[in-house]
Nucleic acid binder design. Structure first.
Lengths: 142, 142
DNA sequence: ATTGTTGCAAACGGTTTGCAATTTA
DNA sequence: TAAATTGCAAACCGTTTGCAACAAT
Protein backbone atom coordinates (compact mmCIF):
# COMPACT_ATOMS: atom_id res chain seq x y z
CA UNK A 1 0.00 0.00 0.00
CA UNK A 2 1.71 3.13 -1.25
CA UNK A 3 1.39 6.68 0.08
CA UNK A 4 -0.99 7.45 -2.77
CA UNK A 5 -3.31 4.71 -1.60
CA UNK A 6 -2.94 5.81 2.02
CA UNK A 7 -3.93 9.30 1.12
CA UNK A 8 -6.99 8.17 -0.79
CA UNK A 9 -7.98 5.93 2.08
CA UNK A 10 -7.99 8.90 4.45
CA UNK A 11 -10.01 10.94 2.01
CA UNK A 12 -12.56 8.17 1.76
CA UNK A 13 -12.70 7.80 5.52
CA UNK A 14 -13.28 11.51 5.83
CA UNK A 15 -16.16 11.12 3.41
CA UNK A 16 -17.68 8.36 5.55
CA UNK A 17 -17.06 5.59 3.04
CA UNK A 18 -16.58 2.18 4.61
CA UNK A 19 -13.30 0.54 3.87
CA UNK A 20 -13.76 -3.15 3.34
CA UNK A 21 -10.91 -5.50 2.47
CA UNK A 22 -12.32 -5.72 -1.06
CA UNK A 23 -12.28 -1.98 -1.48
CA UNK A 24 -8.78 -1.65 -0.13
CA UNK A 25 -7.49 -4.31 -2.47
CA UNK A 26 -9.26 -2.83 -5.47
CA UNK A 27 -7.85 0.56 -4.58
CA UNK A 28 -4.30 -0.62 -4.37
CA UNK A 29 -4.60 -2.49 -7.65
CA UNK A 30 -5.91 0.50 -9.55
CA UNK A 31 -3.93 3.26 -7.91
CA UNK A 32 -0.59 1.50 -8.05
CA UNK A 33 -0.97 0.49 -11.69
CA UNK A 34 0.08 2.60 -14.63
CA UNK A 35 -2.13 0.53 -16.94
CA UNK A 36 -5.69 1.17 -17.98
CA UNK A 37 -7.40 -1.85 -16.48
CA UNK A 38 -10.85 -3.22 -17.18
CA UNK A 39 -13.19 -4.58 -14.53
CA UNK A 40 -12.19 -8.20 -14.95
CA UNK A 41 -8.50 -7.41 -14.62
CA UNK A 42 -9.18 -5.35 -11.54
CA UNK A 43 -11.34 -8.06 -10.04
CA UNK A 44 -8.74 -10.77 -10.64
CA UNK A 45 -5.80 -8.79 -9.35
CA UNK A 46 -7.68 -7.60 -6.30
CA UNK A 47 -8.83 -11.15 -5.58
CA UNK A 48 -5.24 -12.35 -5.56
CA UNK A 49 -4.49 -9.87 -2.79
CA UNK A 50 -6.89 -11.49 -0.34
CA UNK A 51 -10.63 -12.03 -0.13
CA UNK A 52 -12.06 -12.82 -3.53
CA UNK A 53 -13.90 -9.91 -5.09
CA UNK A 54 -17.12 -10.45 -7.02
CA UNK A 55 -17.66 -8.51 -10.18
CA UNK A 56 -20.71 -6.82 -8.67
CA UNK A 57 -18.43 -5.41 -5.99
CA UNK A 58 -15.78 -4.48 -8.52
CA UNK A 59 -18.35 -2.55 -10.54
CA UNK A 60 -19.85 -0.90 -7.50
CA UNK A 61 -16.50 0.08 -6.09
CA UNK A 62 -15.27 1.53 -9.36
CA UNK A 63 -18.42 3.53 -9.70
CA UNK A 64 -17.99 4.88 -6.20
CA UNK A 65 -14.38 5.83 -6.93
CA UNK A 66 -15.36 7.53 -10.16
CA UNK A 67 -18.17 9.41 -8.42
CA UNK A 68 -15.75 10.52 -5.72
CA UNK A 69 -13.47 11.89 -8.41
CA UNK A 70 -10.62 9.57 -7.52
CA UNK A 71 -10.58 7.40 -10.60
CA UNK A 72 -11.23 8.19 -14.27
CA UNK A 73 -13.29 5.92 -16.48
CA UNK A 74 -12.23 5.55 -20.11
CA UNK A 75 -13.94 3.96 -23.09
CA UNK A 76 -11.31 3.43 -25.72
CA UNK A 77 -13.34 0.68 -27.31
CA UNK A 78 -17.09 0.43 -27.20
CA UNK A 79 -18.46 -1.89 -24.61
CA UNK A 80 -15.60 -2.07 -22.14
CA UNK A 81 -14.83 0.44 -19.47
CA UNK A 82 -11.23 0.92 -18.43
CA UNK A 83 -10.08 2.71 -15.34
CA UNK A 84 -7.06 4.74 -14.42
CA UNK A 85 -5.91 6.73 -11.46
CA UNK A 86 -4.94 10.27 -12.39
CA UNK A 87 -3.40 12.37 -9.63
CA UNK A 88 -5.51 15.39 -8.87
CA UNK A 89 -4.63 18.39 -10.99
CA UNK A 90 -3.08 16.14 -13.59
CA UNK A 91 -4.57 15.70 -17.04
CA UNK A 92 -3.68 13.88 -20.21
CA UNK A 93 -5.19 12.46 -23.35
CA UNK A 94 -4.49 9.15 -25.07
CA UNK A 95 -2.83 7.53 -28.04
CA UNK A 96 -4.22 4.06 -28.63
CA UNK A 97 -2.67 1.34 -30.75
CA UNK A 98 -5.45 -0.22 -32.78
CA UNK A 99 -3.51 -3.44 -33.13
CA UNK A 100 -2.15 -4.32 -29.69
CA UNK A 101 -4.25 -2.01 -27.56
CA UNK A 102 -1.27 -0.22 -26.03
CA UNK A 103 -2.23 3.11 -24.51
CA UNK A 104 0.20 6.03 -24.38
CA UNK A 105 -0.56 9.30 -22.68
CA UNK A 106 0.04 12.74 -24.13
CA UNK A 107 -0.61 16.35 -23.31
CA UNK A 108 -0.57 19.41 -25.52
CA UNK A 109 -1.19 22.87 -24.19
CA UNK A 110 -1.96 24.39 -27.55
CA UNK A 111 -4.76 21.92 -28.12
CA UNK A 112 -6.09 22.48 -24.62
CA UNK A 113 -6.37 26.19 -25.29
CA UNK A 114 -7.83 25.78 -28.75
CA UNK A 115 -10.60 23.65 -27.35
CA UNK A 116 -11.77 26.49 -25.15
CA UNK A 117 -11.68 28.85 -28.10
CA UNK A 118 -13.63 26.45 -30.28
CA UNK A 119 -16.26 25.86 -27.62
CA UNK A 120 -16.67 29.59 -27.06
CA UNK A 121 -16.93 30.28 -30.78
CA UNK A 122 -19.91 27.93 -30.94
CA UNK A 123 -21.51 29.31 -27.81
CA UNK A 124 -20.63 26.38 -25.60
CA UNK A 125 -19.23 26.50 -22.10
CA UNK A 126 -16.77 23.63 -22.12
CA UNK A 127 -16.87 21.23 -19.21
CA UNK A 128 -14.75 18.41 -20.54
CA UNK A 129 -13.38 16.70 -23.58
CA UNK A 130 -12.22 13.41 -25.00
CA UNK A 131 -9.29 13.37 -27.34
CA UNK A 132 -8.00 10.05 -28.56
CA UNK A 133 -5.52 9.46 -31.34
CA UNK A 134 -5.62 6.01 -32.93
CA UNK A 135 -2.82 4.41 -34.86
CA UNK A 136 -0.11 1.80 -34.89
CA UNK A 137 2.44 1.96 -32.13
CA UNK A 138 6.15 1.67 -32.89
CA UNK A 139 6.26 -2.04 -32.19
CA UNK A 140 3.22 -2.86 -34.29
CA UNK A 141 4.60 -1.00 -37.29
CA UNK A 142 7.56 -3.37 -37.61
CA UNK B 1 -34.31 10.71 -52.94
CA UNK B 2 -31.63 13.36 -53.37
CA UNK B 3 -28.63 13.28 -55.72
CA UNK B 4 -26.44 12.26 -52.80
CA UNK B 5 -28.59 9.20 -52.26
CA UNK B 6 -28.65 8.47 -55.98
CA UNK B 7 -24.91 8.56 -56.10
CA UNK B 8 -24.52 6.22 -53.17
CA UNK B 9 -27.04 3.86 -54.69
CA UNK B 10 -24.96 3.58 -57.84
CA UNK B 11 -21.83 2.99 -55.80
CA UNK B 12 -23.53 0.21 -53.91
CA UNK B 13 -24.84 -1.33 -57.11
CA UNK B 14 -21.34 -1.24 -58.53
CA UNK B 15 -20.21 -3.09 -55.42
CA UNK B 16 -22.86 -5.76 -55.98
CA UNK B 17 -24.92 -4.84 -52.97
CA UNK B 18 -28.60 -5.65 -53.35
CA UNK B 19 -30.88 -2.69 -52.97
CA UNK B 20 -33.99 -3.64 -51.13
CA UNK B 21 -36.76 -1.18 -50.29
CA UNK B 22 -35.61 -1.28 -46.67
CA UNK B 23 -32.09 -0.34 -47.61
CA UNK B 24 -33.18 2.45 -49.88
CA UNK B 25 -35.38 3.93 -47.22
CA UNK B 26 -32.71 3.66 -44.56
CA UNK B 27 -30.25 5.30 -46.91
CA UNK B 28 -32.44 8.24 -47.68
CA UNK B 29 -33.21 8.77 -44.01
CA UNK B 30 -29.58 8.82 -42.97
CA UNK B 31 -28.06 10.59 -45.94
CA UNK B 32 -30.63 13.35 -46.11
CA UNK B 33 -30.50 14.10 -42.40
CA UNK B 34 -28.09 16.51 -40.77
CA UNK B 35 -28.74 14.92 -37.40
CA UNK B 36 -26.81 12.17 -35.69
CA UNK B 37 -29.47 9.48 -35.53
CA UNK B 38 -29.52 6.31 -33.50
CA UNK B 39 -30.80 2.96 -34.76
CA UNK B 40 -34.28 3.32 -33.41
CA UNK B 41 -34.75 6.74 -34.99
CA UNK B 42 -33.46 5.42 -38.29
CA UNK B 43 -35.70 2.38 -38.10
CA UNK B 44 -38.80 4.43 -37.35
CA UNK B 45 -38.20 7.05 -39.99
CA UNK B 46 -37.35 4.47 -42.63
CA UNK B 47 -40.46 2.48 -41.72
CA UNK B 48 -42.62 5.53 -42.29
CA UNK B 49 -41.30 5.70 -45.85
CA UNK B 50 -42.73 2.33 -46.82
CA UNK B 51 -42.17 -1.27 -45.81
CA UNK B 52 -41.57 -1.52 -42.09
CA UNK B 53 -37.93 -2.08 -41.20
CA UNK B 54 -36.97 -4.45 -38.41
CA UNK B 55 -34.20 -3.45 -36.08
CA UNK B 56 -32.14 -6.44 -37.19
CA UNK B 57 -32.22 -5.04 -40.69
CA UNK B 58 -31.50 -1.54 -39.48
CA UNK B 59 -28.44 -2.78 -37.60
CA UNK B 60 -27.26 -4.92 -40.50
CA UNK B 61 -27.72 -2.16 -43.02
CA UNK B 62 -25.92 0.40 -40.93
CA UNK B 63 -23.04 -1.97 -40.43
CA UNK B 64 -22.84 -2.53 -44.16
CA UNK B 65 -22.86 1.20 -44.83
CA UNK B 66 -20.15 1.79 -42.24
CA UNK B 67 -18.05 -1.04 -43.68
CA UNK B 68 -18.46 0.43 -47.14
CA UNK B 69 -17.19 3.73 -45.83
CA UNK B 70 -20.39 5.55 -46.62
CA UNK B 71 -21.58 6.28 -43.11
CA UNK B 72 -19.71 7.14 -39.91
CA UNK B 73 -20.60 5.60 -36.60
CA UNK B 74 -20.30 7.78 -33.50
CA UNK B 75 -20.45 6.99 -29.81
CA UNK B 76 -21.04 10.23 -27.98
CA UNK B 77 -22.57 8.41 -25.04
CA UNK B 78 -21.68 4.89 -24.03
CA UNK B 79 -24.10 2.27 -25.17
CA UNK B 80 -25.76 3.98 -28.11
CA UNK B 81 -24.39 4.21 -31.60
CA UNK B 82 -25.30 7.22 -33.69
CA UNK B 83 -24.80 7.51 -37.39
CA UNK B 84 -24.08 10.35 -39.73
CA UNK B 85 -23.36 10.72 -43.39
CA UNK B 86 -20.16 12.64 -44.05
CA UNK B 87 -19.42 13.48 -47.67
CA UNK B 88 -16.23 11.85 -48.81
CA UNK B 89 -13.20 14.00 -48.21
CA UNK B 90 -15.01 15.90 -45.50
CA UNK B 91 -14.06 15.68 -41.86
CA UNK B 92 -15.15 17.26 -38.63
CA UNK B 93 -15.17 16.72 -34.91
CA UNK B 94 -17.95 17.33 -32.40
CA UNK B 95 -19.11 19.57 -29.62
CA UNK B 96 -21.72 17.84 -27.49
CA UNK B 97 -24.11 19.48 -25.06
CA UNK B 98 -24.17 17.35 -21.94
CA UNK B 99 -27.60 18.64 -21.03
CA UNK B 100 -29.75 18.50 -24.17
CA UNK B 101 -27.58 16.28 -26.33
CA UNK B 102 -27.23 18.82 -29.14
CA UNK B 103 -24.29 18.04 -31.40
CA UNK B 104 -22.38 20.77 -33.19
CA UNK B 105 -19.61 20.11 -35.67
CA UNK B 106 -16.26 21.84 -35.73
CA UNK B 107 -12.95 21.65 -37.54
CA UNK B 108 -9.59 23.05 -36.65
CA UNK B 109 -6.59 22.69 -38.89
CA UNK B 110 -4.06 23.44 -36.19
CA UNK B 111 -5.33 20.61 -34.07
CA UNK B 112 -5.38 18.27 -37.06
CA UNK B 113 -1.71 18.97 -37.68
CA UNK B 114 -0.72 18.77 -34.04
CA UNK B 115 -2.22 15.32 -33.80
CA UNK B 116 0.14 14.03 -36.45
CA UNK B 117 3.07 15.59 -34.66
CA UNK B 118 2.03 14.10 -31.34
CA UNK B 119 1.55 10.65 -32.81
CA UNK B 120 4.95 10.79 -34.50
CA UNK B 121 6.64 11.99 -31.35
CA UNK B 122 5.43 8.88 -29.57
CA UNK B 123 6.32 6.55 -32.42
CA UNK B 124 2.75 6.05 -33.61
CA UNK B 125 1.54 6.13 -37.18
CA UNK B 126 -1.83 7.84 -36.82
CA UNK B 127 -4.78 6.25 -38.57
CA UNK B 128 -7.63 8.11 -36.95
CA UNK B 129 -8.79 10.11 -34.00
CA UNK B 130 -11.75 11.04 -31.89
CA UNK B 131 -12.06 14.55 -30.55
CA UNK B 132 -15.14 15.50 -28.64
CA UNK B 133 -15.67 18.64 -26.61
CA UNK B 134 -18.36 18.44 -23.96
CA UNK B 135 -20.14 21.37 -22.42
CA UNK B 136 -23.32 23.36 -22.20
CA UNK B 137 -24.67 24.78 -25.43
CA UNK B 138 -25.81 28.38 -25.63
CA UNK B 139 -29.45 27.53 -25.00
CA UNK B 140 -28.73 25.32 -22.01
CA UNK B 141 -26.64 27.99 -20.33
CA UNK B 142 -29.59 30.37 -20.01
C1' DA C 1 -27.13 -1.60 16.81
C1' DT C 2 -27.25 0.72 12.64
C1' DT C 3 -26.24 1.35 8.21
C1' DG C 4 -23.49 0.16 4.34
C1' DT C 5 -21.35 -3.59 1.68
C1' DT C 6 -21.04 -8.21 -0.31
C1' DG C 7 -22.20 -12.12 -3.39
C1' DC C 8 -25.51 -14.37 -5.97
C1' DA C 9 -28.45 -14.65 -9.55
C1' DA C 10 -31.69 -12.44 -12.22
C1' DA C 11 -32.60 -8.43 -15.02
C1' DC C 12 -31.21 -4.99 -18.41
C1' DG C 13 -30.35 -2.73 -22.88
C1' DG C 14 -28.09 -2.34 -26.98
C1' DT C 15 -26.49 -5.28 -30.47
C1' DT C 16 -25.73 -9.70 -32.92
C1' DT C 17 -27.02 -14.03 -34.92
C1' DG C 18 -29.28 -18.72 -36.55
C1' DC C 19 -32.73 -19.97 -39.35
C1' DA C 20 -36.55 -20.46 -42.52
C1' DA C 21 -39.05 -17.63 -45.71
C1' DT C 22 -38.61 -14.24 -49.14
C1' DT C 23 -36.61 -11.25 -52.51
C1' DT C 24 -33.00 -9.44 -55.62
C1' DA C 25 -30.37 -9.70 -59.68
C1' DT D 1 -32.45 -20.10 -59.68
C1' DA D 2 -28.49 -18.95 -57.05
C1' DA D 3 -27.14 -16.03 -53.62
C1' DA D 4 -28.27 -12.31 -50.58
C1' DT D 5 -31.62 -10.12 -47.42
C1' DT D 6 -35.46 -10.05 -44.19
C1' DG D 7 -37.91 -10.76 -39.73
C1' DC D 8 -38.32 -13.24 -35.67
C1' DA D 9 -36.77 -14.78 -31.56
C1' DA D 10 -33.08 -16.31 -29.03
C1' DA D 11 -28.41 -15.42 -27.74
C1' DC D 12 -24.75 -12.19 -26.29
C1' DC D 13 -22.12 -9.38 -23.23
C1' DG D 14 -20.92 -5.85 -20.30
C1' DT D 15 -23.16 -3.76 -16.61
C1' DT D 16 -26.74 -3.03 -13.02
C1' DT D 17 -29.78 -4.37 -9.36
C1' DG D 18 -32.93 -6.80 -5.64
C1' DC D 19 -32.28 -9.25 -1.82
C1' DA D 20 -30.73 -11.71 2.24
C1' DA D 21 -26.50 -12.49 4.76
C1' DC D 22 -22.77 -10.15 6.65
C1' DA D 23 -19.36 -6.69 8.17
C1' DA D 24 -17.73 -1.74 9.31
C1' DT D 25 -18.32 1.82 12.37
Amino acid sequence: MTRAVDEIVSQLKARQKRLTPQRLNILSVVVDSTEHLDIEQIRQRASRLGDPVSSATAYRTMRMLVDEGIIKERHFKEGVARYEYVESGEHHDHLICTQCGRVTEFTNDTIEELQLVIAAKHGYRMTGHKHEIYGLCARCQE
